[in-house]
Design a protein around this nucleic acid. Structure first.
Length: 562
RNA sequence: UGGGGGAUAGUUUAGCGGUAAAACUCCCGGCUCUGACCCGGGCAUCCUUGGUUCGAAUCCAGGUCCCCCAGCCA
């Protein structure tokens, strides 16, 4: 059976974050470890999130701590319940469990508001009436310091009054914000009086219209961590510059714990795009069929494609965690998928592009049942019967009328083995009026039943096949990389690099009957072609398979070289 | 000409002062009722220049290149 285990393994390799946690534990700086995975529910989870999920949940598990799932839902205009639901499903599918620890930043809105007032009262925050463009102008540039807002030294009482009225909904969007009073001349832009609250008259998926002001990421994140007693708040490198602000807020607020932030390099993969903005466009502009299109790097897409959760975890584990910017070869992902599937995926025979083969010396109307093993290395997987007959189908790629050197498969006069069946020799090539090969007439050796010749002679190739008598038609979807260059977007718009041939639909495929009742999502290996899984589009009588990943194809390389 | 980070094989990662390790890719070969799997073998002037040291990928100093930051996004 396919590996469908849902419990994540703990064989994670060493990395600098684990080292930090271990040191903190050993030095007594932390009594236990509490991490969190904090997605904003504004899209589907993808490969990059998988890395973060495995890291955060993995560390918690390794050190006997816990990992929270917390939705960073501070911007209601971008967030939807649909995403909240899908994210939970995806994390679970990946094999992780947050137990009772499901939280929302919005759960803390009241507490955060109180802390905001605290900052106002202590003179560390003020209400600024400067419009957005004015604030931008006052912020300065990367090399020039910013200018103080004229409202920077507003009296505490006035700030308090204004802030309360902001909450009460008295002012329109964008007319005022609450800012931390830190340092307009800081080299770190995040310290130039960052915005803590903005006015947003927008309904929130969870709090409805209870609020007309919402905290920014910077004000919500660290404090949420503190509320949950997160010990190690792990995020990606682009938040490095926010750490001083994270710490500043923790220091100036009466928070119940002192979390620490650590950053690692986000995942990049060749031929893939992982920015939420681009993924959203792929969906909304119709370049793919949805968030779960098997070509998408989303967890949902990957799952639909037939990739087991264990393969995703294995990939993340192989990639490692570091602070160096990097782009992982997508081949590493494909390899992890094959390695995960190979030991367990049942073997079946399916002919993607059928070519009829007629065995002239096989009795007409006769069929027989042969025994085919379900797995070459695992006898316990058992076997299944396959029908053999006078007319069978083989792969078009397995025949060449004029074979190049090193082509071991069928060609005029050549003998090959039909897997678990007989040796057959190609005697005649049947063509239509256009000269296209439409069938092969062959002879077989009755003594080679089961796949071995009585005289011990060898053949160079063993072909997969299906019998015309009981083959089942199927649609097979072959996927190639969604982008046609390893670094999509490196020159201009990433969507301009979309591979127009990322999907190939084969409607005339024939598969062995044992495949007719394959469960959705579980991968099987079509011998000699790859790993495939039933797509949810599949219906009784209309099988649809997705190619999860192909097998390594040495011949393709040899033949490509000529 | 601001601040913050990063540089180890084609790609990721390990290495934490003792003479470069693993996975993936690629190449060569073996095995084979999947040209799969599996098994051999090959592929690195550790960004650079100096310094410290018996000894440096590891420590120090200078340089170079790359990434992030000027949202009332996260």
């Amino acid at each position: 059976m396919v590996d469908t285990e849902t419990t994540a393994t703990t064989d994670a390799p060493r990395n600098f974050i684990r080292d930090i946690v271990q040191d903190d534990l050993e030095a007594g700086r932390a009594r236990g470890v509490v991490t969190r995975f904090p997605p904003e529910p504004n899209g589907f989870l993808h490969l990059g999130h998988a890395k973060s999920i495995c890291l955060n949940f993995g560390i918690a598990k390794e050190f006997g701590g816990r990992c929270h799932l917390r939705f960073d839902d501070t911007n209601p205009v971008k967030e939807e319940q649909l995403f909240i639901d899908s994210i939970q499903a995806d994390v679970r599918w990946l094999g992780f469990d947050w137990g009772e620890h499901l939280y929302y930043a919005s759960d803390y809105f009241e507490q955060l508001y109180e802390w905001a007032e605290h900052l106002v009262r202590t003179g560390n925050a003020y209400v600024d009436d400067t419009p957005a463009d004015g604030m931008r102008a006052q912020r300065g540039t990367l090399t020039e310091p910013g200018q103080n807002s004229p409202f920077r030294y507003r009296p505490v009482e006035e700030n308090l009054d204004l802030f309360r009225r902001m909450r009460a909904g008295e002012f329109p969007n964008g007319t005022r914000v609450l800012r931390a009073r830190i340092d307009m001349a800081s080299g770190n832009m995040n310290l130039r009086d960052p915005v803590l609250y903005r006015i947003l008259h927008a309904p929130h998926p969870r709090t409805g219209d209870a609020w007309s002001i919402y905290p920014t990421y910077d004000f919500a994140h660290g404090q949420s961590d503190a509320i949950e007693h997160i010990t190690h708040s792990v995020c990606t490198l682009e938040f490095e510059d926010h750490r001083p602000l994270y710490d500043w807020l923790i220091e100036h607020l009466p928070v119940p714990s002192r979390p620490r932030q650590y950053e690692f390099a986000r995942l990049n993969v060749t031929y893939t795009i992982l920015s939420k903005r681009h993924l959203t466009r792929l969906v909304t502009e119709g370049h793919v069929t949805g968030w779960d299109d098997p070509r998408m790097p989303t967890i949902a897409g990957i799952r639909r494609r037939g990739v087991p959760a264990a393969a995703l975890r294995e990939f993340v584990s192989r990639v490692g965690v570091a602070r160096a910017y990097s782009t992982v070869d997508v081949a590493m992902f494909e390899s992890a998928i094959r390695d995960t599937l190979n030991p367990s995926a049942p073997r079946r025979m399916a002919v993607l592009r059928p070519l009829k083969l007629i065995i002239d010396n096989y009795p007409e109307g006769q069929t027989e049942t042969l025994d085919a093993r379900n797995h070459p290395d695992n006898p316990e997987a058992g076997s299944r019967p396959v029908t053999f007959g006078r007319e069978i189908y083989v792969e078009q790629d397995d025949f060449m009328e004029v074979p190049p050197k090193k082509f071991y498969r069928l060609s005029p006069g050549k003998e090959v083995r039909l897997r678990y069946g007989y040796f057959v020799t190609c005697r005649e090539v049947v063509k239509d009026a256009d000269g296209q090969v439409v069938a092969l007439r062959c002879s077989y050796d009755p003594g080679s039943k089961g796949g071995n010749a009585p005289d011990g002679r060898k053949v160079q190739a063993t072909l997969h096949w299906v019998a015309a008598a009981d083959a089942v038609p199927a649609e097979i979807r072959l996927y190639a990389h969604l982008f046609n260059r390893p670094d999509p977007g490196a020159e201009g718009d990433a969507l301009a690099d979309i591979n127009p041939e990322s999907l190939e639909v084969l409607t005339g495929a024939l598969v062995e009957p044992a495949l007719a009742d394959a469960p959705v999502g579980e991968a099987v290996q079509f011998e000699r072609t790859g790993y495939f899984a039933i797509d949810p589009d599949s219906r009784p009588g209309r099988l649809v398979f997705n190619r999860t990943v192909g097998l390594r194809d040495t011949w393709a390389k040899v033949s490509a070289k000529g």
